[in-house]
Design a binder for these strands. Sequence first.
RNA 1: GAUUCCGUAGCUCAGCUGGUAGAGCAAUACACUUUUAAUGUAUGGGCCCUGGGUUCGAAUCCCAGCGGGAUCACCA
Length: 568
Amino acid sequence: MSHIELSEQEILRRESLQKLRDLGIDPYPAALYPVDAYAHNLKQDFEDGKEVCLAGRMMSQRIMGKASFAELQDASGRIQVYFNRDEICPDEDKTLYNEVFKKLLDLGDFIGVKGRVFKTQVGEISVHVHSFTVLSKSLRPLPLPKTDTDGNVHDAFTDPELRYRQRYVDLVVNPHVKEVFVKRTKLFNAMRHFFNEAGYMEVETPILQAIPGGASARPFITHHNALDIPLYMRIANELYLKRLIVGGFDGVYEFSKNFRNEGMDRTHNPEFTAMEIYVSYKDYNWMMDFTERLLEHCAMSVNGKTEATFGEHHIDFRAPYKRVTMRQSIIDFTGFDIDGKSEEELFAAAKGMGIAVDETMGKGKLIDEIFGAKCEGNYIQPTFITDYPKEMSPLCKVHRDNPELTERFELMVCGKEVANAYSELNDPIDQRERFEEQLRLQEKGDDEAMFIDQDFLRALEYGMPPTSGLGIGMDRLIMYLTNNASIQEILFFPQMRPETKSVKIELNENEQAIFAAMQKQGESVLPDLRAQFAEMSNKVWDNSVKTLTKNNLLKVSKENETLYIRLV
RNA sequence: GAUUCCGUAGCUCAGCUGGUAGAGCAAUACACUUUUAAUGUAUGGGCCCUGGGUUCGAAUCCCAGCGGGAUCACCA
């Protein structure tokens, strides 16, 4: 089972590993290697004759007898290194060059080199190697895309399944993949910087929650043994951040890994990252100003410009963004005015627009459906949609001018929501009623309605200052900023079905029993093993053992007239 | 969940209306002291995703399963 059949190339690499050891070379040395240079910098600032020490993976080898070129890839990029036999081996013994460098090193091995920077006749900046050190042997061949002189990539490592399952290989071999993740980190840093400059505090709140609040979604459930209670992986951190505002912090934010037990597709992963920030004494109008300045700043930090390309769309994150009320948006795209309409009227209108509706939908849900179907997709440039129906926003303050609406906005980019913000509801009595309304919706059949968090209500009863909160879908934002249509491209390790690599062999009861016994013993004399299964007939025994040996699980061998059986 | 496409060497891919598996790169061996998709010559490498079926014969046709992609639905 643990035995994996090795390919020819893997066997050869293991042999090279042993030969290195036989030559007294440790293929996995412990000592630090005194790197003082990086490929990118050496090429950027060429200094002829400079002595350098660098390390990385050997990604190509061009051997020409007594001289060779190789390419070294470190974290910053690639640089060519030049090996000369008589310089690597000044004495009679040419083993280090002829054997170690030419034969025992494979592509993908980590080596360190010390040498002098120079330019070849063809003008390639290279390092003339005086000495090299094996730093780590690679036992599996990497896929090796090659770029020709015209910049065309050949044999690119493109299979999405392999790329996501073995992201480490993807990163080694596809430099553009690395760039995406560098940008992702730049985005996080830019946001942190922006918030910290504004004087707000980064905090951490529970990921394991007794009540999964703050959003409507199906949670992952787990169990705490010592307390013997169910716990949920958080679907949002909103209610905890508000508790901190109650506690007297002025502004708090958190990059929150959230978990939702729902479908996966091009834009949804079961775990994803949201950023939430809450600032006291502000309202959603202030938050719109803050958000557009924030995103302009982030786009600049990530891409060096406010414009971004996403598929066929060209978007510009330069502030300010257009602001449209939801009512106006629906008028714009359908001609229908939702203002003052009854549930029946909205139902009929939605149905008339060809939207699938059912009786469980309340007013708010109907409006949301209309907006989702007819309006949302039209907002390519960043646009604030404001003033959502009350029913859809149970944590949001009622609109100061209209009791049917809330002070909420969503930021739409490329027809999708990127951010969501409120003037936060801080009236504890209203909040309790909203939660109870959610319960009624749940009973009516809306499986998205929220749980009631009594402790959160208690906190509000102590008093929360007027506060505005903002949530940003970080994954979606980075997709826009790096022009990736798939969330799997911007997560290091997107969720995949587990690999079921081991070939499943159906064993019957007897075969399983014998195999289990062998797994414990590892090796046995055949008659001894037979004796342990005395209840089996000879025929059953014989068939079982043959099945196991045929499937390469066990092996029988004869040594000095004794039959041994062992695990393969 | 539905539809659809795909699964062949380490990687990228050919393989026709069924007849015992092919290329390039990578690997191995030899040659080669400034090359760069290095070059030249030679060689090795395959559970053709898994399991069933049809057939004298299946990588190829049929069915089922597993894994992945795309689109749609659901879902923030």
